[in-house]
Simulated scan of single mutants.
Amino acid sequence: MAHGDITHIDIPVSDLKRAAGFYSALFGWQIAAPPGFEDYPMWQAPNKISGGGLAPRGEGFTQPRSYVEVDSIEETLAKATENGATVVMDKTPISDTSWWAIFTDPDGNAIGLYEGTTEVPESDS
């Protein structure tokens, strides 16, 4: 994916197992928790392109959040704040080769940023 592409969508849920069953039955999504991310089942749409995660609902995370791939989280956060955004979470590692961050735009919408490469083993489910 390239800078500016939507790469991932997290959906906040209160019951991971129930949500996995619901979205799998409704849309045919393949849902599995990859090794090392057992509390974060990932979904993939039938097109094998669209995907995201089912994440625990919590304070500050009550609506789906899209993640945009960027070349540099630091540069993107600097540009975002120059244009009225507020950083909610600074660059944080996901793995040795990938990072994420969150900001809110001037209207209060939470937007996630993703930088790097994350290799997730395919599941047999």
Rank of each mutant, 00 (worst) to 15 (best):
S50K: 05
E119V: 13
I94C: 12
R57A: 12
P12Y: 13
T97C: 04
Y23N: 08
D124H: 14
T97H: 10
S66D: 00
A80G: 02
R18G: 05
Y23C: 05
K91E: 14
E69R: 11
S125Y: 11
M1Y: 15
G52M: 01
Y67D: 00
E74A: 11
T76N: 04
T92R: 02
S123E: 13
W99V: 07
R57D: 09
L26Q: 09
L77G: 06
S125R: 15
F61G: 05
A33K: 02
L77S: 03
M1G: 15
Y114H: 12
D15M: 06
N47L: 00
V88D: 04
H3T: 14
L16I: 12
S123Q: 13
D71K: 03
F61W: 05
D71I: 03
T92M: 08
D124Y: 11
D39N: 10
A19T: 11
W29F: 12
E74G: 00
Q63K: 10
P64L: 03
S14P: 06
Y114D: 07
E59S: 03
I6W: 13
Q63N: 04
N109Q: 10
A19V: 09
G21R: 13
I102F: 10
G112H: 06
E75D: 13
I6Q: 13
E122C: 03
G52Q: 01
W29K: 05
V70S: 08
Y67A: 00
T92E: 06
S123H: 12
G51M: 01
D71E: 08
T76L: 02
P41H: 04
E69Q: 12
V68H: 02
P41N: 04
W29V: 07
L77D: 06
M89V: 11
L26G: 05
V68E: 00
A55I: 10
G116D: 09
S95W: 02
P41R: 01
I9S: 08
I9E: 01
G52Y: 03
A25S: 15
L77H: 02
A20I: 05
A32E: 13
H8W: 15
V88M: 06
M42W: 01
S95P: 05
G52R: 00
P121L: 07
G53C: 00
Y114S: 11
T117P: 03
Q30L: 07
M1F: 14
K91T: 13
V87E: 13
T97W: 02
A25L: 14
G51A: 04
L113I: 02
P106Y: 08
F37P: 01
V13R: 06
T118L: 15
K48W: 02
V87N: 09
S14A: 14
D39F: 01
A32T: 12
I73P: 01
G4S: 13
P106C: 04
D5A: 14
V120Y: 11
R57E: 09
I11G: 13
G28S: 11
H3I: 12
I6D: 09
A78K: 14
E115P: 04
P121G: 07
A85D: 03
P46C: 07
A19E: 12
E119G: 11
T7I: 15
D10M: 09
P12V: 10
T86A: 09
T118M: 15
T62N: 12
Y23K: 08
W43C: 06
P64T: 04
A85L: 06
N83C: 10
S125E: 15
G108H: 02
T117V: 15
